[in-house]
Amino acid sequence: MRDRHEEVLRRVMEAEAAKVEVSPDALTTIRARTVRRARWLPFGAIAFTAATATAATLVVVALAARPTPHDAAPDPGAVTAPATTQPPATSAPPTSAPAVPPPSKSSPSSGTSTESLAIYYVADDGGKPRLYREFHRLPADGSPAGKVRAAVTGMLAQESAEDPDYTSAWPAGTDVSDASVAGGVVTVHLSAAPPDDLAGQQLVWTVAAAVGGDPQVRVLVGGREVASLRKKPALDTLGALWLIEPQQGATVAKTFEVHAAGAVFEATAQLTVRQGRTVVTEKTITLSAGAPARGEARITLTLAPGTYVLELYAHSAEDGSVQHLDDHTVTVR
């Protein structure tokens, strides 16, 4: 009877293992462990141990195969550029090349080592100045401090934003002479102190995007600390809606993805595509979370070649008026 039970158990184990894609030696390893332990355990313990090993194998494989949630809330301080942006047609790589962010007004000449870095700008959001983000290719040595210097230099450059609606809270002539990163503290040497709280937040969000996380940002002018900054809550600082992709001025294929993010009532936003005065299409977008949380959504559009304006906005819950507008002009090739 005992031999019969062992034979049945062996067949069950082999049948279960055949359903799972694991490494070639996994089943052998399980059997070997079971045989070694069989010398010391009664038959009931052997059956329990083998079943547990098989179940554990199934769980591990299932966890490894589980996809990353696509609708996770976006990180507004992300340190890497979106993956779908295409460069202008004049410098477009072959179709097999990876997509890259469009070159910015502050881009260096060709041949210089560059990093794709997030820069935060200021724009009006229903009468309130809020922060919006663009990715720019800037010269940097790849170190955290080098990325900070490059990003802050780009932020301080006058009229460096690709989107004409974006501006800077910093006065002309302000520059950065040095930056250092030590643990969770970033020290930035500037020629002038932040003129107001909004300028300070523009700086700290740009710095945080360069190094990741929520660092303390020390601002030094003439070797003296004039400010110690932290990011304020996104709900109070960032634009209610961001049209993340495509970026302003991007050139895209006729079928492309629109990536939106924000914090709006009932997680509902609108996307209108215009060509001149003609409305080409209108879409209702449901973000993955509603205010006060910040959610995101991705939709695919197919358009004929030409130049279009993509308008992302929400309707006011009070009177239905347009609010939180963020628009980008793009070219479909």
Rank of each mutant, 00 (worst) to 15 (best):
5 H>L: 15
6 E>T: 15
7 E>Q: 15
11 R>T: 06
12 V>S: 05
13 M>H: 02
15 A>G: 05
15 A>N: 12
18 A>T: 12
18 A>P: 05
20 V>K: 03
26 A>T: 11
26 A>L: 11
28 T>W: 14
30 I>L: 15
35 V>H: 05
37 R>E: 02
39 R>G: 04
40 W>A: 05
45 A>F: 08
46 I>Y: 10
46 I>D: 06
46 I>K: 09
47 A>E: 02
48 F>Q: 03
51 A>C: 13
53 A>G: 04
53 A>H: 09
54 T>M: 10
56 A>Y: 04
57 T>V: 13
58 L>Y: 14
58 L>D: 14
58 L>P: 07
63 L>I: 04
63 L>W: 08
64 A>G: 06
66 R>E: 12
67 P>D: 10
69 P>Y: 11
70 H>M: 10
71 D>W: 05
76 P>V: 13
77 G>W: 07
81 A>N: 08
84 T>M: 11
86 Q>R: 15
92 A>I: 04
94 P>Q: 02
96 S>M: 00
99 A>F: 02
100 V>A: 10
104 S>R: 02
104 S>P: 12
112 T>N: 02
115 E>R: 14
115 E>A: 15
118 A>V: 09
118 A>M: 12
123 A>E: 01
123 A>M: 10
129 P>N: 15
134 E>Y: 03
135 F>Y: 15
136 H>N: 04
137 R>K: 00
143 S>K: 07
149 R>C: 07
150 A>W: 13
151 A>Q: 05
158 Q>K: 15
161 A>M: 02
163 D>Y: 00
165 D>P: 01
171 P>K: 09
174 T>V: 15
178 D>I: 08
179 A>D: 10
179 A>V: 09
185 V>I: 13
188 V>A: 02
190 L>N: 04
193 A>P: 09
194 P>R: 08
194 P>E: 11
195 P>T: 12
196 D>H: 12
196 D>F: 11
197 D>K: 14
198 L>V: 08
199 A>T: 10
200 G>Y: 08
202 Q>H: 02
203 L>I: 01
203 L>E: 00
203 L>Y: 02
205 W>I: 03
205 W>E: 00
206 T>V: 00
209 A>I: 04
210 A>M: 06
213 G>E: 07
216 Q>E: 13
219 V>D: 07
222 G>H: 13
223 G>Q: 06
224 R>E: 09
226 V>A: 11
229 L>M: 10
230 R>Q: 04
231 K>C: 00
238 L>A: 00
239 G>C: 06
239 G>W: 03
240 A>D: 06
242 W>V: 06
244 I>T: 15
244 I>H: 13
244 I>F: 07
250 A>E: 01
252 V>N: 07
254 K>S: 13
255 T>S: 15
257 E>V: 14
260 A>P: 05
266 E>Q: 14
269 A>M: 04
271 L>A: 11
272 T>K: 06
272 T>R: 14
273 V>S: 02
278 T>L: 06
279 V>Q: 09
283 K>E: 09
284 T>F: 01
285 I>W: 00
291 A>Q: 13
293 A>G: 07
294 R>W: 11
297 A>G: 06
300 T>F: 03
301 L>R: 10
302 T>N: 12
304 A>Q: 11
306 G>E: 01
306 G>S: 04
313 Y>W: 14
313 Y>K: 05
315 H>P: 07
321 S>W: 15
322 V>A: 15
329 T>G: 01
